[in-house]
Design a protein around this nucleic acid. Sequence first.
DNA 1: AGAAACATTGCTCTTTGTGCAATTTCGTGA
DNA 2: TCACGAAATTGCACAAAGAGCAATGTTTCT
Lengths: 203, 203
Amino acid sequence: MTESSLRDKKKLATRKALAEAAFELAVERGVDSFVVEDIVTKAGYSRRTFANYFSCKEEAIANSLGLDEYLQPVDQFEFSPKDHTPLSTIEVFIRRSFTINKLKRLNQLISLSREHPTLRLYVTGALKEMQDFAGRGISEEYGSDYPPEYYHILIGAVFGAILPVLDESFDVNLPDDEEQIENSNEFNQYMDTVFAHLRKGFS
Amino acid sequence: MTESSLRDKKKLATRKALAEAAFELAVERGVDSFVVEDIVTKAGYSRRTFANYFSCKEEAIANSLGLDEYLQPVDQFEFSPKDHTPLSTIEVFIRRSFTINKLKRLNQLISLSREHPTLRLYVTGALKEMQDFAGRGISEEYGSDYPPEYYHILIGAVFGAILPVLDESFDVNLPDDEEQIENSNEFNQYMDTVFAHLRKGFS
DNA sequence: AGAAACATTGCTCTTTGTGCAATTTCGTGA
DNA sequence: TCACGAAATTGCACAAAGAGCAATGTTTCT
């Protein structure tokens, strides 16, 4: 299912290596104090190869979020929450996908992009890919149980609510202590209120 | 209020001229069959001036949507719908902002960006600016009547619901007949269901 | 093992991005 | 009204990016 030949694994590996090198350089030196050349020397590839994977350094930095890891397990949606409604399913998907490490990385990316419009664009673009993925998953899962727009609206609402808060004053607020319980951070508390609002409706 | 000295007007004019030239070239020749040089000769400016306004041709094309026109009248929010709730206010704002002409242009842009990831990024970026603008407006309007996240969630939901449909199979479906009633197009019908869902809540 | 498919790379050339300085245009106060 | 300061436009020059092409090395499939 996962379609991972050795060739594909290597492709993902180089992609990840390049993205990670780009991200580290961005943190160490600042976004516009290094060039593509620096990335490839750090990662051990050629400038031409970089161009095969990313169109610019901002794209590479943003992709260090590791979308690939979300996009692999299409069966995230297999397991159903108790009530098996689209909203609950999405809720579970969100809480599983935004792990502490992802949130940390996301926070760094948003902080980096605060003064870099282009990077910001690519970061939100990466999140939008995740949104599309979730959209496809959920509408396959529930098929024609709901009108087709329903899924768009719901997914759009959930992701639309996530982004603005994330890039404005939000902090995951977890120390380097990895043993912390996944569900007891600011993000999850915020998501509580998001889903509560979505269930209740707006006025 | 509108802060438009003659100098500012000229700035907006050149900006608009450049963006419009870029858009027309994109439609005529296709997005990657022309260069910045072509844009500036068409618009009558220098390459260096182009760089003062846009960072790349995609940004120029996307900005032909004419965000500026949204961003001017901050008092869009002044007038209140009957029930004066955030949702209704946003609804009115949306319906007023997405005029037929805007929707047509948006459709063309989305169609152009279908095969051009970079352009797509800038188009969604432009819409996100509009979203931020709406967010600022609405939270100024209602202040602390609602918890601060409420506005983010609501605006995020509305705009989040708009984007996916717009770039997937959506067509404004209005001929060149400008006299058509603004409220009787597919977009407005879709927005009807969006707001209905948001009022009702999700399950 | 051999052939086909594909990733990586070097090379080259066009296009882009940007700092700096010069010039022109606009705004403001005497 | 005039002249001075502010800001927009432009040219120039150079570093960097983007992309086609062909060569080379690696994986896959039979």
